[in-house]
């Protein structure tokens, strides 16, 4: 059996003037989390809808759990769980009724469907609200019910489109726990998110989509390394020694760069940043600082944050005409 549980090639989808997907290739390894990042309108939801059999692409092929999404959608549907970007719980039904209905549609017996509903409601902290119509739920409760709904059938592949949008920080971390536990039990999770922190925390690999194209595909660390490279950061204890420290650290800087005062405000104020080629630079920097008698309160190697990566990736890719036109309409 293939190690890839999601494989898409050359997906294209056009809505009127908008080329929502413009040749997207995706792959997700079994038992991993793939994070799909991209600014608003990048095509994330469209890609998820194609993979979850809700939308036929104009061009391209896709396989989920080894099955062709376009040729055998029904078999794919038996293996996936989907939580769309917008809550799709039935507001007039109670939490229990929502989940039982889905269980029945997944061919569980009514008894099993009920048992599964109780289990999931408890897991998602909704037991107390289980008997109330979902329209009385708060936004976060609806979102959780929506997530529970995608797990009713113990799916092999789970698609989560911005699963934690609208959740408070504690519930968001709970949700990360849910995702991790699903993966531990053998599921594979494809999730889109606006939170880089979330992708960093959960994803084994990240795809960045922009204007319907994949502009990067790597591990979180790989992405960070690719864009900004490693930085050695040193904070001399005595501000008067900064000029000396700059001179010493220049020697370990990557070719063509040099040590400089970090111009960022806040925590990094007063620290010196040195772009370095490899992490062995720290072995040279330490003895050199000691020899010069410079004491420091902080010293470490840093990768750029995913935020920085994301901005540098999406800003360097220019917008095609069609999308620009569409964004005007939105204003």
């Amino acid at each position: 059996m293939s190690d890839l549980v999601v494989r898409a090639e050359g997906l294209r989808k056009r809505f009127g003037k908008t080329q929502a997907l413009d040749g997207v290739d995706l792959s997700m390894r079994r038992g991993t989390v793939l994070g799909v990042l991209g600014p608003n309108g990048a095509g994330k939801t469209t890609a998820v809808r194609v993979l979850a059999t809700l939308l036929r692409p104009d061009e391209g092929t896709a396989e989920v759990a080894g099955i062709d999404v376009l040729k055998q959608p029904q078999r794919v549907r038996r293996r996936i769980g989907l939580t769309g970007q917008y809550a799709s719980v039935d507001e007039d039904l109670t939490g229990t009724q929502n989940l039982v209905l889905i269980g029945q549609l997944l061919d569980l017996t009514t008894r099993d469907a009920k048992r599964r509903a109780v289990e999931l409601l408890e897991w998602f902290d909704l037991t107390e609200a289980a008997g109330r119509p979902a329209k009385t739920y708060s936004g976060g409760m609806r979102r959780r019910l929506d997530l529970a709904a995608s797990l009713v059938g113990h799916p092999e592949v789970i698609f989560l489109d911005e699963p934690t949008t609208g959740l408070d920080p504690a519930k968001r971390e709970d949700m990360w726990g849910v995702v991790r536990s699903q993966v531990t039990q053998g599921a594979s999770v494809l999730l889109t998110t606006q939170y880089l922190e979330e992708a960093d925390a959960l994803a084994d690999e990240i795809v960045v989509i922009h204007h319907g194209r994949v502009i990067a595909f790597d591990t979180p660390d790989g992405l960070k390394r690719r864009v900004g490279g490693l930085t050695l950061r040193v904070r001399p204890s005595d501000p008067a020694r900064v000029p000396d420290a700059l001179r010493v650290l220049d020697a370990v800087a990557a070719p063509g760069t040099g040590a400089s005062m970090d111009d960022a405000a806040g925590a990094r104020r007063g620290a010196i940043s040195v772009p370095v080629a490899t992490d062995t630079a720290i072995d040279e920097a330490l003895p050199a600082l000691r020899r010069a008698g410079i004491e420091f309160s902080d010293l470490g190697l840093h990768l750029p944050s995913l935020d920085e990566v994301f901005h540098s990736l999406t800003e360097s890719t220019t917008a095609p005409q069609t999308t620009a036109a569409k964004e005007d309409e939105l204003v």
Binding site: R78, R79, L105, D107, L120, W123, G153, H154, V178, Q185
Partner: peptide, 30 residues
Amino acid sequence: MTTLDVPVRNIVGDIDKPRGGALAAQVRHS
């Protein structure tokens, strides 16, 4: 949130076959 372990898919038999046949399944779903 509890740490209740939710078991992975435990469906017996062929996962691609609707329980009781296609027609029965369609009636049940409707």
